[in-house]
Write a protein that binds this DNA or RNA. Structure first.
Lengths: 230, 230
DNA sequence: ACAAAAGTGTTGAAAGTACACCCATGT
DNA sequence: ACATGGGTGTACTTTCAACACTTTTGT
């Protein structure tokens, strides 16, 4: 069923950079393309936006179809539309990034024929289209996001230890943090709730589990408080 | 000359929120629509993206065609694509914001039939489509941008006085600043060059003119220095 | 008993904030 | 001469950054 317009239109897609945290590393979810162009190469999950579908919905749908992920933190990143970015024709893509924690949302295989896999940052293979460029911007944005908002809690399970949280920040920021200063800042902010539980599997001394205090955070955000967590 | 595709495609436009500074106020450039829908209502300048044209180029072209402005600071804001945002059909728009200073880029009239005019923030009329929503986001972004980068200098003429700069910050941030502390912070940053000139038209004591030190700024930005100017 | 990671306070430096007077100029 | 806005320094408070030892627990 063909569709005809008075003027030429670029095609519109959404692409999504999915960041996932496992015990060791922050990883990125990639799919191996089953179709031309760039067949067999790795790429960001994504696909064509349907008419009547908002870009947010489209990004969520593609993510669900290609990777099985749903109910994740998803935010628009940037729109890329250089005419040469797709060899076939002019394709404009609205890029998103998503944060998931790999323990609560296990790494589901793709539902269609394409292969999906998680890659640590420094082992990302060459990517199709301008996806390396998109990924680079997403990484920058992730750093900024974690610095100024408590988005880190989207990457962690509901209950987490302070060393886990600190280690997440250290890996994203690219440098180590002082344990005492890090905890001091957190406790002054008051967005963590101490639980009575401790981690179970610990090989050494078990760390206390904490939860994120959504309500306290809402209050602070509404009051325009400074939420930088270094 | 009609164009036919295998699947339906949303239309793609760019829209631009143009902020301009004159002596009194930060103003927004709006055009009065000459065509349906929303004929006669005020709206953001913008129009359809052509195939083979990058969104940045499209936004610049529309801005030039509709308002005569060129060579301005232009940055992508967000992409809006709710299917209901245009009553005709699904239109996705890539929104930009621009910063101009009204002394160096005088308020040129529109080249096509539409009327163009500058409105202070609190006198913006009801806008077509979801343009009020776009404008609100642009305002938030402008505040953040001025806070963390020296984008303020895009709004000012090449040579400006410190009271002008401070007043700009005060209007954007919505509160007053201490004169001495403001100057202290600026001089510590070292991104201003003192000239030997003074303002001419002053009704009272003339203030010294300063220039923005682009090179010093580049050096700082490259070194990831903290550039917050309150 | 020891190895390995969890947890906890203090001090000095830097930055931020509040605050008041003199100066230059046009009328 | 005076009214108006331009220009300047200091003391106090808060925040940031550096730093080392004790505790717990599994092996």
């Amino acid at each position: 069923m063909p569709f005809t317009y008075a003027y030429a239109r670029p095609a519109l897609t959404t692409d999504c950079v999915v960041f996932g945290l496992d015990e060791d590393d922050i990883k990125v979810l990639l799919i191996q393309r089953g179709l031309e162009p760039f067949r067999g190469q790795w790429a960001l999950p994504g696909g064509f936006l349907r008419t009547g579908e908002s870009p947010d919905d489209g990004a969520r749908r593609e993510l669900r179809e290609e990777t099985g992920l749903s109910e994740v933190f998803l935010e628009q990143l940037y729109t890329f539309g250089e005419p040469a970015r797709d060899p076939r024709e002019h394709v404009v893509t609205i890029a998103y990034y998503a944060l998931v924690n790999l323990l609560e949302h296990p790494p589901t295989p793709a539902t269609d024929a394409d292969d999906a896999a998680w890659f640590p940052f420094d082992e990302v293979p060459p990517l199709a289209f301008d996806h390396e460029h998109i990924l680079a911007l997403a990484r920058t944005r992730l750093t900024a996001k974690l610095r100024y908002t408590p988005a880190a809690f989207e990457l962690l399970p509901e209950k987490f230890t302070l060393p886990e949280l600190q280690s997440l920040y250290e890996r994203v920021l690219g440098h180590t943090l002082d344990k005492r200063n890090f905890r001091k800042k957190l406790s002054k902010l008051g967005i963590l709730i101490e639980t009575d539980e401790f981690q179970q599997d610990a090989a050494r001394r078990a760390a206390r589990l904490h939860r994120f205090d959504h309500e306290a955070y809402q209050r602070l955000a509404k009051a325009d408080a400074d939420l930088t967590l270094l």
